[in-house]
Simulated scan of single mutants.
Amino acid sequence: MIKTVRRLRLPALAAVAAAALTVAGCGSSSSSSSGSATTRADPGGKFTIGYDVYWLGNSWSTQLAEEFRAAAERNRDSIEKVVYTQSDNQVQKQISNVQSMISRRVDAIIMTPISPSASVPVIQQANRAGIPVILVAGQADTRDTAAEVRADDIVFGRTGAEWLVRELGGRGKIYVLNGLPGFSTDTLRWKGAKDVFDRYPDIEVVADAHAAWDTARAKTAVSNMLAAHPEVDGVWSQGGAMTLGAIQAFRAAGKPLVPMTGENNNGLMKVWDSLNRAGDRRFDSIGVVNPTWVGSEALTQTLNLLRGDEVRKVNLVNPAPITSDNLADYVRTDLPDSFWVDTRLDDAQIRALFDR
């Protein structure tokens, strides 16, 4: 993930803590899952949805929230209003925000748990109040949620690791760039990757760092790694913006690029595309996709649930990864680095989001 640039804005969400807006709903489909959940049916009614914006600290989370907002605008016939809160990546603030939604008797709550463990009591509180909680892009340490909509982060980590092992022929020294410690996304992505690396004794992790899915932090981290461990054959990164930072660090140090795993971040896509066009095959990557449109998918599942339809308990979305073969279909050279490709936003919504 990449740090939000100044021109990236979220007009409806940046100042909506505890505000109620009249909005609309959405429709779309999800991938696989397990189990199912149902709630009270009101097929012809209009609903009040609580949506907690867990963080606007990088462009992925900002685009996630915008995907939800745009989806809500698409179905105002189904939604009376959305009660938005903003938690700023603070656990206690998120708990308080969700409690405020419970007090307001919203029909459902959509949230991304900042802490998988600390969020459990408030999720259970909502459950006791008869308010279903739907998780988007995250997990909690409880079965008391009505549904989850997210990418499979273990598969995410494993997919990149398997690609890197193949690129290196099963042997070599690598750097590891993780995200934010404590987040289920960070933990599970690394678990998926480590399970692969553990099967290859000739793959050696010589340095690792948490770079918060941020380009600048990753550049600093990799610069330090290059100084301490200059011999390296590849980089496993669990975020595209961090991969971009790694490329910048290699270039600044005058080091030849090596294979690096990535994500569906437009900044990485643009650099990768330019290298491809220049015929520089020293660098290759894979864009494992964590789609921001899970924000709209969470609303789809929430509305289905409130209408009384059967909804899968866990909805996993795992789009095919981006490779050199299909990179040209995704890269947007006309958009900023902080854009995330594979979106359900239309061009007008994208340009409004980036204030171009």
Rank of each mutant, 00 (worst) to 15 (best):
K194C: 11
K194A: 10
D195H: 11
D195Y: 11
D195F: 10
D195I: 13
V196W: 00
V196T: 11
V196R: 04
V196F: 09
F197R: 10
F197Q: 03
F197P: 01
D198W: 12
D198F: 02
D198C: 14
D198M: 12
R199Y: 09
R199C: 05
Y200T: 09
Y200P: 14
P201N: 03
P201M: 04
D202V: 07
D202R: 12
D202S: 14
D202G: 11
I203Q: 02
I203F: 04
E204W: 10
V205T: 12
V205H: 06
V205Y: 06
V205W: 09
V205N: 07
V206K: 14
V206R: 13
V206W: 11
A207E: 00
A207V: 07
A207D: 10
A207K: 08
D208Y: 13
A209Y: 00
H210M: 04
H210K: 05
A211T: 04
A212N: 09
W213P: 02
W213N: 15
W213V: 05
W213L: 09
D214L: 00
D214I: 02
D214H: 03
T215R: 07
A216H: 14
R217M: 01
R217L: 06
A218D: 02
A218F: 01
A218E: 04
A218M: 05
K219L: 05
K219Q: 02
K219E: 09
T220Q: 07
T220S: 04
T220W: 06
T220M: 10
A221I: 00
A221Y: 00
A221E: 00
A221P: 03
A221N: 00
A221M: 03
V222H: 01
V222A: 07
V222E: 02
V222R: 03
V222N: 02
V222Q: 00
S223G: 14
S223H: 12
S223Y: 01
S223K: 02
N224S: 13
N224C: 15
N224W: 02
M225C: 12
M225F: 03
M225Y: 10
M225R: 08
M225I: 01
L226A: 06
A227E: 07
A227V: 04
A227T: 11
A228G: 13
A228H: 14
